[in-house]
Write a protein that binds this DNA or RNA. Structure first.
Length: 869
DNA sequence: ATACATACC
DNA sequence: TACTGGTATGTAT
């Protein structure tokens, strides 16, 4: 609301520590009093000291920036201004007001769920979390300044009556599934951002809706409607709550809210008719959410995601706001909007901008020339879009997760041995999670936070992707050891440790196996030649710069801009309007252009769900099943390694053209042979060496029990420069019998894919209920088992049936009809990678409709379809 | 490639 | 007593 620029250091620091009254439900509280309490509670703590330190760093950044600003000449500014104007024109021309984007957000989600399920809580200030940290508070608690991300013990000081309820993620997930089912009715491709939040593209729904009869727009009040629930509760206090409008269950209608909802209290068993307008459609969606879950949602309607997000906050709770799709309305809306309201501008960016006296979005537009001289290209691009009220007009899922991690906070831990065993624990849990998604990564990162809250990360990238506990631990342990050694003779005094895996081998790299399986079933021989001749494959793509993470992001920003002008000429770039940033970073822009080009091939149709249903993920499942039967990680490492270099399908996961070599999964060294028998003998040898070393080292040190693996890796480092060996193209017949002996050595290398043996739940809270709701990626039915072996058998069966069907000439994969009734499926199909990490069991086998933007995936789908014809 | 910082829920 | 955990991305080196 009130964003005074930081005048003194103290006030500046407040912006970091103090209450953030940006949130809904925080209006008109005694900010000073609250801030005093917060500061008093924090002062002197290690946390506070560290925050002070970080704040000073930010202040230095600002000082540096101000110095830069002082050195800017009028001439520079003028030139920049001209460029900005050009850029603005270009962006303006790209403005697309044709989409209807909706952002939905549940009101005080976790807290509301808990209140719904516990009458006692309905009248009390409460929060979900612990004494250490709160994740949400109800609106009653917000009156005291209690909010998300505030430690419980401070919240208690603000409000001694505060009831803190421990989180119940299973429950929230279940509710989330319910609301996602409703979302899917309005946009089957909706983008969930968290359990309680999603973006939807209503454009198509609204087109259809115009032709809908009233019957389709009529929705009944649920028998367990909110009013009923409140009235039925025996506790008389609940009636009070209702009267006071404070019941977070039945939020008072906000200004933007519909007529009707409120007036129909007594209409249990009745129904409500909704109109055909956007607002009516969104109102209807919120109505259905409320009837189904007894919880309320707020929504924002706007022509792009950035604006929709801001709009959903406008009439929170239990309200909605529509920003009309005209340039004028958008610019008006933006005018006085505090920059902090924009998603992506956090407290640091806000502070930096405030230092330049930029507090409102309109200031951004006015100061663009200055900003372009002080901030990075990416940041400027973003600022400029914000200042024009532009944002993404197409919602698309991020196709693949980029990292997976686990971290834990604990009381001071200084003993090295304990640190190592904790590290192993983390690696074990991470490996389990990786296994569930069939992931293998090349980069292992260790995160350490000491008792002074100082954070350190250390990373190492391996030659080939790993996934097993031992493999991860071998690296993490080393990283940890280095840090311990660096600190010695003092111990590391840790309060947090985390392990992260990244640089995953693309899931597409697993495709060749599946292809060859299908090919085998079809023709009785390798499918490689047919696949190689597949016309949809364009060999020139292989040499294009692939979408590195950074390039991909940059691409999104650039997309509107490039696309809107001359979509058919993106390759050429270099139009005058681009020159502004191009001059600054010509090289980077070129990357953008090619990446736009690459992406556009696969994106459009697929993102809207036109792609053949799940051919790609079916393949993943096939591969998993096959691996599950035939071998452990050895063969899977091989598959990945073999697949990547084949080059027939450029990998989007790596920018580098991967060499065609065979790499031993045990010692990670390159093996100079194309003969797989030779290669397998090498692996056997390595495994023997490994197990011998293991025995030896076990007596040497507790933490070196898997020293062998590490030794192998070090060996590999020395061998790194050994000559690369050309590999067979993927899909050659060997690939289906790669490493036939892998299984025999399962003792030293863990079976990678979905063994049930270690499915015991971990203590980590994110694992709650992780084994429920396994959904078969083939038939889409929820399997009522927690046993992954059982589940795997089911998937295998399904896959066999499916392949047989397809061979009979059914080119489209028809869903099992009974699937439709299974509510869990929609939700689980729609899980984005982020959520997938939280509901990991659901993601196994990557359900079919998860779109993959990659052109090569599409190519692959076509390939298989062709095959079967 | 690595380290660190920022941001979001 | 007590200030999270998971993921993505930007920036600097």
């Amino acid at each position: 609301m009130d964003n005074e620029p930081a005048q003194t250091k103290d006030e500046g620091f407040l912006s970091r520590m103090a209450l953030n009254d940006n949130k809904a439900g925080m209006e008109g509280l005694d900010r000073d009093k609250i801030n005093n309490i917060i500061m008093e509670s924090s002062k002197g703590s290690k946390f506070y000291e560290n925050e002070l330190k970080k704040d000073q760093q930010v202040n230095q950044r600002i000082e540096k920036m101000m110095l830069q600003k002082a050195n800017i000449t009028q001439a520079q500014l003028k030139k920049a201004q001209a460029q900005v104007e050009k850029m603005t024109l270009a962006l303006e021309r790209s403005r697309d007001l044709s989409r209807v984007i909706v952002h939905v957000d549940m009101d005080a989600f976790y807290a509301a769920v808990e209140m719904r399920d516990c009458a006692e809580l309905k009248t009390k200030p409460m929060a979900v979390g612990s004494m250490s940290m709160l994740s949400t508070s109800n609106y009653l608690a917000r009156k005291y300044g209690v909010r998300a991300a505030m430690p419980g013990f401070i919240a208690k000081k603000l409000c001694s009556d505060l009831v803190i309820v421990p989180p119940n993620f299973d429950k929230y997930r279940a509710v989330s599934d319910e609301i996602r089912e409703i979302f899917a009715d309005y946009d089957p491709h909706f983008l969930p951002m968290s359990l309680d939040e999603a973006y939807l593209d209503f454009t198509e729904h609204l087109e259809q809706r115009q032709t809908w009869p009233e019957s389709l727009r009529t929705h009944r009040y649920s028998s367990k409607s909110i009013t009923t629930a409140v009235e039925e509760t025996p506790n008389p206090k609940d009636t009070e709550a209702k009267d006071e409008d404070l019941s977070p269950i039945l939020f008072k209608e906000s200004p933007g809210s519909p007529p009707g909802l409120d007036g129909s209290k007594g209409a249990n068993g009745g129904s409500e008719l909704f109109g055909t307008s956007v607002e009516e459609a969104v109102r209807e969606m919120r109505f259905r959410i409320e009837q189904k879950t007894m919880l309320t949602a707020s929504a924002g309607i706007a022509p792009n995601m950035m604006l929709a997000k801001v709009c959903s906050d406008k009439n929170k709770p239990n309200g909605q706001y529509r920003l009309p799709p005209t340039r004028e309305a958008v610019m008006d809306f933006i005018q006085d909007l505090p920059v902090r309201k924009i998603c992506g501008i956090g407290k640091v960016s806000e502070k930096m901008l405030n230092a330049l006296e930029i507090t409102k979005c309109s200031h951004l537009g006015q100061q663009m020339a200055l900003l372009s001289l002080l901030f990075s290209e990416t940041a400027c691009q973003n600022f400029m879009e914000v200042s024009l009220g532009l944002g993404s007009t197409r919602i698309s899922r991020h196709e693949e997760r980029k990292s997976m991690s686990i971290e834990r906070t604990f009381k001071e831990l200084s003993d090295a041995e304990e640190q190592f065993s904790l590290c192993r624990e983390l690696c074990k849990d991470l490996a389990e999670d990786m296994k569930k998604e069939g992931l293998k990564g090349k980069t292992v990162s260790l995160k350490l936070k000491n008792v002074n809250f100082e954070v350190k990360t250390r990373a190492q990238t391996l030659q080939c992707a790993v996934a097993a506990e031992e493999e991860i631990f071998a690296v993490a342990k080393d990283l940890l050891k280095t840090e311990i050694d660096n600190e010695s003779p003092h111990p590391l005094k840790l309060r947090l440790m985390g392990v992260r895996m990244s640089a995953f081998v693309s899931s597409d790299d697993k495709a060749p196996t599946q292809k060859s399986i299908l090919g085998f079933l079809k023709s009785g021989s390798s499918g490689s030649s047919e696949i190689k001749g597949e016309p949809s494959y364009n060999p020139s793509q292989a040499s294009q710069p692939m979408a590195c993470p950074s390039v991909q992001t940059a691409k999104r920003k650039e997309e509107v801009f490039l696309h809107s002008r001359k979509p058919e000429e993106t390759r050429n770039g270099g139009e005058p309007q681009q020159s502004f940033f191009q001059r600054a970073q010509a090289k980077r822009l070129q990357l953008h252009v090619s990446s736009v080009n690459t992406q556009d091939e696969g994106c459009g149709a697929e993102a809207r769900g036109i792609s053949p249903i799940g051919a790609c993920s079916k393949e993943s499942a096939l591969s998993s099943a096959a691996l599950n039967k035939t071998g452990g990680s050895v063969s899977q490492v091989l598959e990945n390694k073999r697949a990547a270099p084949a080059g027939d399908h450029p990998s989007t996961s790596g920018c580098e053209a991967r060499p065609q070599i065979l790499i031993c999964p045990v010692c990670s060294s390159k093996v100079e042979t194309t003969d797989l028998n030779v290669f397998n003998r090498h692996i056997d040898l390595c495994l023997n060496v490994a197990s011998t070393n293991q025995k030896k080292s076990e007596s040497e040190s507790v933490y070196d029990e898997k020293k062998c693996l590490q030794e192998c890796k070090e060996l590999n480092k020395r061998k790194e420069r050994s000559e690369a060996e050309e590999e067979q193209p993927f899909g050659s017949k060997e690939s289906s019998r790669v490493c036939p002996r892998g299984g025999q050595h399962g003792g030293s290398i863990q079976k990678v894919f979905l063994t049930q043996s270690d499915s015991k739940p971990t203590t980590s809270q994110k694992c709650q209920g992780k084994l429920s709701d396994l959904v078969c990626p083939v038939c889409h039915l929820t399997q009522e088992t927690d046993d992954l072996a059982v589940f795997n058998r089911h998937v295998d069966l399904c896959l066999n049936q499916e392949v047989l069907h397809e061979l009979k000439g059914q080119t489209t994969f028809s869903q099992n009809p009974s699937v439709v009734k299974n509510s869990k499926n929609i939700a689980s199909r729609n899980l984005p990678p982020k959520q997938a990490g939280k509901v990991k069991s659901k993601r196994r086998g990557s359900p079919s409709s998860l779109p993959s933007k990659k052109s090569r995936s599409l190519g692959l789908c076509n390939t298989i379809d062709k095959f079967l014809r």
